[in-house]
């Protein structure tokens, strides 16, 4: 399998030589797979490539049902991410060197508002401002035309601020991982 996969990809590239000579694609739309877990939300991002500096900037929005049962919890927020692609090349796919592919390091910030409603007593019990920062490492694959898959992992740190003032603010660090699927264009 490990021998066969590169051979298949090489054959696919050989059958589409025009792709290798195409200009570098500078835009991407991606969906974060973890945000779809449970089919109760999504995080969608637009990413812009600056090939001269091998960096990309992305902006994302997310909306999610974060609690149910005897409560309704909603989260809405936005985020930004800066990625620096190390060599901007990948052995896996038809895109030319200098594309936003391959290994990258990223810094990310997210700002969300989380609301929690108690259905039994029919009242909002909390609104929390959540600020998160992440340091990530990842690898973008673009194995077929514009299709991209990007697994990544790293460390995150978040700060929850209860806007009602009942709960003290607190911080939480964690190991994190995820993957996006999207389209380069």
């Amino acid at each position: 399998m490990s021998v066969a996969l590169p051979a298949i990809i090489s054959a696919a590239i050989a059958t589409h030589p025009e792709l290798a000579s195409e200009p570098v694609l500078e835009h991407a739309i991606t969906v974060a797979v973890p945000s779809l877990d449970g089919l109760r939300g999504a995080q969608i991002a637009y990413e812009r490539w600056f090939p001269a500096h091998r960096i990309s900037l992305s902006a994302s929005v997310q909306l999610r049902q974060a609690a149910r049962g005897d409560y309704i919890g909603m989260r809405a927020g936005g985020g930004g991410e800066l990625r620096w692609f190390w060599r901007a090349t990948s052995f896996l796919g038809p895109h030319p060197d200098g594309s936003m592919i391959g290994w990258f390091l990223a810094a990310r910030i997210d700002v969300n508002v989380d609301g929690t409603h108690d259905l039994i007593s029919d009242r909002w019990i909390s609104t929390t401002l959540e600020v998160g920062t992440s340091a990530l490492i990842g690898y973008r694959l673009a194995p077929w035309r514009g299709l991209e898959l990007t697994p990544y992992g790293g460390l995150t740190w978040r700060r929850d601020v209860d806007l009602s003032g009942r709960l003290p603010s607190w911080s939480r660090g964690a190991i994190a991982g995820g993957v996006t699927i999207g389209w380069l264009f």
């Binding site: 999504a42 997310q62 997210d110 995150t156 991982g177």
Partner: peptide, 15 residues
């Protein structure tokens, strides 16, 4: 999920 909807974070459900 942590603050980013794009990651699974190593945290418990009570966090």
């Amino acid at each position: 999920r942590g603050a980013s909807g794009g990651t699974w974070d190593l945290v418990t459900s009570i966090d």
